[in-house]
Write a protein that binds this DNA or RNA. Structure first.
Lengths: 192, 192
DNA sequence: CAAATTCAAGAATGATCGTTCTCAAATCGG
DNA sequence: CCGATTTGAGAACGATCATTCTTGAATTTG
């Protein structure tokens, strides 16, 4: 059946994702990818199609592996709010302390390529919707468990958290990220 | 003294700003600028220097004219919180209802060019700091006027609002922006 | 009006863009 | 081991990139 690949497509995809994540779509040239991935030009095109296709694959991989701050810990049994607080604090801390200030690939894609790029628009919309849904479900459970004020609106709170988190992921690119610690503590006060 | 300019540099700068705002830095070519501005290639370079210089000029113009949501209404005498609420609601409504979903040039610059571009990093940092300062001053005044809870932290609240607003400016690029209305109402609850 | 100066339009620059092609080396199934 | 097939390295593609230069027309000053 012919020669086997000298490279692992999954590993290469991760490397491409990292480069797009750091430099953005337009600023990343195919030459950059060839240099950084250590994979031949022709192999890239044969395996992944075009540069744009590769970007979509990288974006899919990013959301699939939950690199945008997976919310799986929301579904664990027990009290919701303590877990949510701890998770959000950890997430913000990660963004505030990361040595590489790349932000979030979903957020970056939204700002750089939405709304002009329809494929990307559809993908980030799915990601945001999923995030909102996960948070809404968790907050509904919190309400049922008596953890929320009676007049709290779980879906509105979830929408707020999704929006606020995008702000965190923008300011995570700045040199000074001390702002984020204050901001997240205030945001979490809404869950009291 | 030679021939006079056939174009108004200020008008041209505004047109360039709009194009960068809509398409981003990398995706906007000099050819795009020539076509959209109706100004000769050589004139652009003679008047503004390089493409990068023009972008910085456009960014400066954007922040100077307060297109990123000027907060001048914060300094007006009288109660702070009603004005702040109304201003933030109006800002979010503008982003939610705008036909062109370009977001905010400062936010877009932060995501696309920070931290790699030092000139842009410095400029957006100044813009965020100024916004935080304006909000902090207003909230300090609100506290002095008894509008805030005794344990409220004006600077932390200001930092929260700056961060949250970046999230609004990201999600303002999505086709469906109903999320923003819920989000802003929740955010404003922190000022109760 | 004449000379000086600056304009606008676009050709031309070399570099780089994304993509395709060539081709020899490598590895598979039979 | 052999024909088939796919690999990797890089040349080559036309297009476009940001920038500079050439050219002739337009406008000002003297």
């Amino acid at each position: 059946m012919g020669r086997t690949k000298d490279f692992d497509p999954d590993t290469t995809l991760v490397a491409a994702m990292e480069l797009f994540w750091r430099k953005g779509y337009e600023a990343t040239s195919v030459q950059d990818l060839v240099d950084h991935l250590g994979v031949a030009r022709a192999s890239l095109y044969h395996t992944f199609g075009s540069k744009h296709d590769l970007y979509l694959r990288a974006l899919d991989h990013y959301t699939a592996q939950g690199a945008d701050g997976t919310l799986t810990w929301l579904a664990e049994p027990g009290p919701v709010l303590p877990a949510l607080r701890a998770g959000f604090r950890a997430l913000a801390q990660d963004y505030a302390r990361a040595t590489e200030r790349n932000g979030c690939l979903v957020t970056n894609t939204t700002v750089e390529l939405v709304p002009a790029d329809e494929s990307c628009t559809q993908r980030v919309t799915v990601a945001y919707d999923q995030m909102e849904r996960d948070l809404t479900i968790a907050l509904l459970r919190a309400g049922a468990q008596g953890e929320l004020a009676p007049n709290a609106d779980p879906r509105a709170l979830a929408r707020f958290l999704v929006t606020f988190l995008q702000g965190v992921k923008v300011l995570a690119k700045l040199p000074d990220r001390t702002r984020l610690v204050d901001a997240i503590e205030q945001a979490l006060r809404l869950l009291d």
